[in-house]
Design a protein around this nucleic acid. Structure first.
Length: 181
DNA sequence: TGTGGATCTTGTT
DNA sequence: AACAAGATCCACA
Protein backbone atom coordinates (compact mmCIF):
# COMPACT_ATOMS: atom_id res chain seq x y z
CA UNK A 1 0.00 0.00 0.00
CA UNK A 2 1.47 3.27 -1.14
CA UNK A 3 0.71 6.85 -0.27
CA UNK A 4 1.93 9.26 -2.91
CA UNK A 5 2.26 12.96 -2.43
CA UNK A 6 3.41 15.75 -4.68
CA UNK A 7 5.84 18.14 -3.07
CA UNK A 8 3.33 20.94 -2.65
CA UNK A 9 0.89 18.54 -0.99
CA UNK A 10 3.54 17.57 1.52
CA UNK A 11 4.34 21.19 2.20
CA UNK A 12 0.69 21.77 3.00
CA UNK A 13 0.51 19.22 5.76
CA UNK A 14 -0.58 20.99 8.90
CA UNK A 15 0.54 20.03 12.39
CA UNK A 16 3.63 18.17 13.44
CA UNK A 17 5.52 15.63 11.37
CA UNK A 18 7.57 13.07 13.27
CA UNK A 19 9.82 10.48 11.73
CA UNK A 20 11.63 7.59 13.40
CA UNK A 21 14.85 6.34 11.86
CA UNK A 22 17.50 3.76 12.66
CA UNK A 23 19.98 1.20 11.35
CA UNK A 24 20.30 -2.55 11.25
CA UNK A 25 22.49 -5.07 9.49
CA UNK A 26 21.04 -6.25 6.18
CA UNK A 27 22.38 -8.78 3.67
CA UNK A 28 23.80 -5.80 1.79
CA UNK A 29 25.53 -3.95 4.59
CA UNK A 30 24.15 -1.49 7.10
CA UNK A 31 20.64 -0.48 6.16
CA UNK A 32 19.10 2.79 7.29
CA UNK A 33 15.36 3.06 7.37
CA UNK A 34 12.93 5.85 8.25
CA UNK A 35 9.27 5.45 9.17
CA UNK A 36 6.66 8.13 9.69
CA UNK A 37 5.19 8.32 13.18
CA UNK A 38 2.97 11.39 12.84
CA UNK A 39 0.64 12.62 11.45
CA UNK A 40 -1.65 9.71 12.20
CA UNK A 41 -2.79 9.31 8.58
CA UNK A 42 0.78 8.51 7.62
CA UNK A 43 1.73 6.50 10.69
CA UNK A 44 3.79 3.39 10.00
CA UNK A 45 4.68 4.24 6.44
CA UNK A 46 8.24 3.65 5.34
CA UNK A 47 9.61 6.79 3.72
CA UNK A 48 13.33 6.09 3.31
CA UNK A 49 15.78 3.21 2.92
CA UNK A 50 19.48 3.41 2.14
CA UNK A 51 22.53 1.15 2.28
CA UNK A 52 25.88 1.76 3.97
CA UNK A 53 25.27 5.48 4.18
CA UNK A 54 24.29 5.83 7.83
CA UNK A 55 26.53 8.85 8.32
CA UNK A 56 24.45 10.87 5.88
CA UNK A 57 21.02 9.52 6.73
CA UNK A 58 19.94 12.25 9.09
CA UNK A 59 21.15 15.15 6.97
CA UNK A 60 19.47 13.64 3.95
CA UNK A 61 16.22 13.14 5.82
CA UNK A 62 16.30 16.73 7.04
CA UNK A 63 16.58 18.00 3.47
CA UNK A 64 13.94 15.69 2.06
CA UNK A 65 11.39 16.11 4.85
CA UNK A 66 11.42 19.76 5.73
CA UNK A 67 9.76 20.74 8.99
CA UNK A 68 9.88 17.19 10.34
CA UNK A 69 11.29 16.15 13.71
CA UNK A 70 13.52 13.05 13.80
CA UNK A 71 13.92 10.39 16.46
CA UNK A 72 16.53 7.64 16.37
CA UNK A 73 15.33 4.19 17.40
CA UNK A 74 17.30 1.19 16.20
CA UNK A 75 15.02 -1.43 17.69
CA UNK A 76 12.03 -0.13 15.76
CA UNK A 77 14.23 -0.09 12.66
CA UNK A 78 15.29 -3.67 13.20
CA UNK A 79 11.68 -4.81 13.30
CA UNK A 80 11.60 -4.22 9.56
CA UNK A 81 14.58 -6.41 8.74
CA UNK A 82 12.72 -9.68 8.50
CA UNK A 83 9.71 -8.38 6.60
CA UNK A 84 11.75 -6.57 4.02
CA UNK A 85 14.59 -8.95 3.29
CA UNK A 86 13.33 -12.40 4.19
CA UNK A 87 9.57 -12.36 3.76
CA UNK A 88 9.40 -9.85 0.91
CA UNK A 89 6.30 -8.59 2.62
CA UNK A 90 6.36 -4.92 1.80
CA UNK A 91 5.26 -2.56 4.55
CA UNK A 92 3.17 0.47 3.52
CA UNK A 93 5.20 3.12 1.72
CA UNK A 94 5.16 6.88 1.56
CA UNK A 95 6.54 8.49 -1.58
CA UNK A 96 6.95 12.20 -2.02
CA UNK A 97 8.21 13.80 -5.21
CA UNK A 98 7.49 15.63 -8.43
CA UNK A 99 4.87 14.28 -10.79
CA UNK A 100 7.41 12.56 -13.01
CA UNK A 101 9.20 11.05 -10.05
CA UNK A 102 6.05 9.56 -8.58
CA UNK A 103 4.97 8.13 -11.92
CA UNK A 104 8.42 6.66 -12.35
CA UNK A 105 8.57 5.08 -8.90
CA UNK A 106 5.08 3.66 -9.31
CA UNK A 107 6.18 2.03 -12.53
CA UNK A 108 9.11 0.45 -10.70
CA UNK A 109 6.77 -1.08 -8.14
CA UNK A 110 5.13 -3.14 -10.86
CA UNK A 111 8.32 -4.90 -11.83
CA UNK A 112 8.58 -8.37 -10.37
CA UNK A 113 11.73 -9.96 -9.02
CA UNK A 114 13.95 -11.49 -11.72
CA UNK A 115 12.52 -9.12 -14.28
CA UNK A 116 14.77 -6.40 -15.53
CA UNK A 117 13.90 -3.51 -17.79
CA UNK A 118 15.95 -0.70 -19.27
CA UNK A 119 15.57 2.99 -18.51
CA UNK A 120 13.80 3.57 -21.81
CA UNK A 121 11.24 0.87 -20.98
CA UNK A 122 10.19 2.81 -17.90
CA UNK A 123 9.94 6.00 -19.92
CA UNK A 124 7.60 4.22 -22.32
CA UNK A 125 5.53 2.81 -19.46
CA UNK A 126 4.74 6.29 -18.20
CA UNK A 127 4.02 7.58 -21.69
CA UNK A 128 7.10 9.74 -22.00
CA UNK A 129 9.11 7.66 -24.47
CA UNK A 130 11.71 10.31 -25.17
CA UNK A 131 12.22 11.34 -21.57
CA UNK A 132 14.40 8.36 -20.67
CA UNK A 133 17.19 10.65 -19.51
CA UNK A 134 14.86 12.45 -17.11
CA UNK A 135 13.43 9.12 -15.99
CA UNK A 136 16.91 7.87 -15.18
CA UNK A 137 17.28 10.96 -13.06
CA UNK A 138 14.10 10.16 -11.19
CA UNK A 139 15.15 6.55 -10.69
CA UNK A 140 18.43 7.77 -9.24
CA UNK A 141 16.52 9.75 -6.67
CA UNK A 142 14.40 6.84 -5.49
CA UNK A 143 14.13 7.44 -1.75
CA UNK A 144 13.17 3.89 -0.78
CA UNK A 145 15.90 1.60 -2.03
CA UNK A 146 15.15 -2.08 -2.40
CA UNK A 147 11.39 -1.86 -1.73
CA UNK A 148 11.06 0.39 -4.76
CA UNK A 149 13.14 -1.89 -6.94
CA UNK A 150 15.26 0.55 -8.87
CA UNK A 151 18.01 -2.08 -8.95
CA UNK A 152 16.01 -3.97 -11.60
CA UNK A 153 16.61 -1.23 -14.14
CA UNK A 154 19.73 -1.70 -16.21
CA UNK A 155 20.99 -0.23 -19.46
CA UNK A 156 19.62 -1.34 -22.76
CA UNK A 157 22.99 -2.83 -23.70
CA UNK A 158 22.62 -5.07 -20.62
CA UNK A 159 25.42 -3.44 -18.68
CA UNK A 160 24.42 -2.55 -15.15
CA UNK A 161 24.28 1.23 -15.38
CA UNK A 162 24.50 3.17 -12.14
CA UNK A 163 23.34 2.67 -8.59
CA UNK A 164 23.20 5.23 -5.87
CA UNK A 165 24.75 2.87 -3.33
CA UNK A 166 27.37 1.49 -5.70
CA UNK A 167 27.01 -0.93 -8.59
CA UNK A 168 28.47 -3.74 -6.52
CA UNK A 169 25.43 -3.49 -4.26
CA UNK A 170 23.20 -3.43 -7.33
CA UNK A 171 24.78 -6.65 -8.56
CA UNK A 172 24.59 -8.22 -5.08
CA UNK A 173 20.88 -7.48 -4.83
CA UNK A 174 20.19 -8.86 -8.30
CA UNK A 175 22.15 -12.02 -7.47
CA UNK A 176 20.27 -12.37 -4.21
CA UNK A 177 16.90 -12.10 -5.94
CA UNK A 178 17.97 -14.55 -8.59
CA UNK A 179 18.83 -17.08 -5.87
CA UNK A 180 15.38 -16.98 -4.26
CA UNK A 181 13.13 -19.74 -5.63
C1' DT B 1 35.71 1.40 -27.80
C1' DG B 2 35.10 6.20 -27.65
C1' DT B 3 32.98 10.63 -28.67
C1' DG B 4 29.27 13.88 -29.61
C1' DG B 5 24.47 15.06 -30.18
C1' DA B 6 19.58 14.39 -28.89
C1' DT B 7 16.47 14.82 -25.20
C1' DC B 8 13.94 16.22 -20.76
C1' DT B 9 13.54 17.25 -15.81
C1' DT B 10 15.53 19.31 -11.73
C1' DG B 11 18.11 22.10 -8.68
C1' DT B 12 20.76 26.25 -8.56
C1' DT B 13 21.95 30.84 -9.65
C1' DA C 1 14.90 33.26 -16.72
C1' DA C 2 18.90 30.75 -17.88
C1' DC C 3 21.96 26.93 -17.25
C1' DA C 4 24.40 22.80 -16.09
C1' DA C 5 24.13 18.14 -14.78
C1' DG C 6 22.42 13.55 -14.91
C1' DA C 7 21.91 5.81 -12.73
C1' DT C 8 20.60 7.08 -21.18
C1' DC C 9 20.74 5.98 -25.99
C1' DC C 10 22.17 6.10 -30.75
C1' DA C 11 25.13 6.92 -34.63
C1' DC C 12 29.29 6.99 -36.54
C1' DA C 13 34.29 6.49 -36.77
Amino acid sequence: MITNMLIHEYNNIIGSIEIIYGNFISPFGICSIAVIDKPIELHGKVCFISFRDQKNTLSHLCKHFKRAVFLENNSIAKNYEHKIFYLSESPPLFLKGTELQIKTWNALLNIKAKESLCYEDIAKLINRPKAFRAVANAIGRNPISYLVPCHRIIRKDKTLGGYRWGIKTKQDILNYEASIP
